[in-house]
Design a protein around this nucleic acid. Structure first.
Lengths: 202, 202
DNA sequence: GTCTATAAGTAGATAGAC
DNA sequence: GTCTATCTACTTATAGAC
């Protein structure tokens, strides 16, 4: 039966997080008020504080949860034994995972400024761990000669930045399928880091 | 002679814009108050309104000025007749220009959400014009066969996203010179879009 | 667990003196 | 052109009733 007051701890909590994620992504953390979140959830602002000590914790929880899931999933999906195949695993996983969670991706990058220094350090650590997933692939590939990168760290950041770009233009109703997009990016990533012999060079 | 009150129109205006640019980049548009800007400039909050009708116009003016300068400079510096050389011009210009103006670059991307719809449309138009600079290079190169890109639009956005990434990690006292960084990125860009024959492929 | 009410502070913007 | 003072609205967070 419908109630306008009473206990809803098991549904209100997730709804607060979903709503906050969407509003933070759309308008920015600083521009969204607790009243606005509460209003969309359907409770009064004071009720939010049953679920979090303050607004900062809400933001941090969203970002931390996202980064932990990213790390967990990337470890599970980047498993091929062959280096080139593992790089392809990573490329396709990164694009797909990021396109599935655009709001969480967006705030995890855009709202770093609004974290306390302690919380910022934690999120930065998780982000670096994720970068290490790719960097170790590039380092192993360079060592064995199947890849050719001038600077492993820069190549890592360059590839991730390039892949992140998909989120800025992708639309569900666009002209390309997800698989086509993955393939186009994988082609560019592969060419950028594989030893090559340009046609027509001498 | 030092004065604490009186006319300063010719120096206060630029100082307001410099200060706002720095504060917006550091803390975000929504998190910076007019009083905070005024305080760092050394005037009272009310005085700011001699230079702009509202806070929104201040943000828009900063972003518009940056984008117009980017367009003007890119046209002046991407001039080589040869396609590959022009792509290299663009790559090196983009990295250098963006590293010279990190705050303006940062807010021109991060604060798009805080523009009114009308202002957003104008900035988006300028951004697309800049992307067209690169896209026309890639299109011309593909047509003449000196470049090989599966999808011109995606390649444009992928290259720009990759180059933009430099701003997230560059430090003046880092281990690489600006020219070394440009060269590393140019190497990756070139390999990604030039027709190639991977060594060891069959 | 949610409500109402409120504390204590800050926001953008304006009016009028100088 | 800048100041002081102020308006109106909104902010995060808390207290206590139910």
């Amino acid at each position: 039966m419908a109630r306008t007051t009473g206990s809803h701890s098991d549904i209100t909590g997730p709804r607060i997080r979903e709503t906050a994620l969407r509003l933070f992504a759309r308008h920015g953390f600083a521009a969204v008020s607790m009243r606005q979140i509460a209003g969309e959830v359907g409770v009064q602002a004071g009720a939010l504080y049953n679920y979090m000590p303050d607004k900062q914790s809400l933001l941090f929880g969203l970002m931390q949860g996202h980064m932990q899931e990213l790390l967990y999933e990337s470890a599970a999906r980047t498993i091929a034994a062959d280096i080139i195949a593992r790089l392809e695993d990573f490329t396709r996983f990164h694009i797909r995972f990021h396109l599935e969670k655009p709001d969480a991706v967006f705030i995890s990058y855009m709202e770093l400024r609004n974290l306390t220094p302690e919380n910022f350090a934690i999120i930065e650590g998780l982000r670096r761990s994720y970068e290490d997933t790719l960097e170790s692939i590039l380092r192993d590939g360079s060592a064995s000669g199947v890849l050719d990168v001038t600077d492993t760290k820069i190549a890592t950041l360059a590839v991730i930045a390039m892949l992140n770009g998909v989120n800025t233009w992708y639309r569900d109703d666009g002209r390309l399928t997800l698989d086509e997009i993955e393939t186009i990016y994988w082609d560019m990533v592969r060419k950028a880091v594989v030893p090559n012999q340009p046609i027509g060079s001498d």
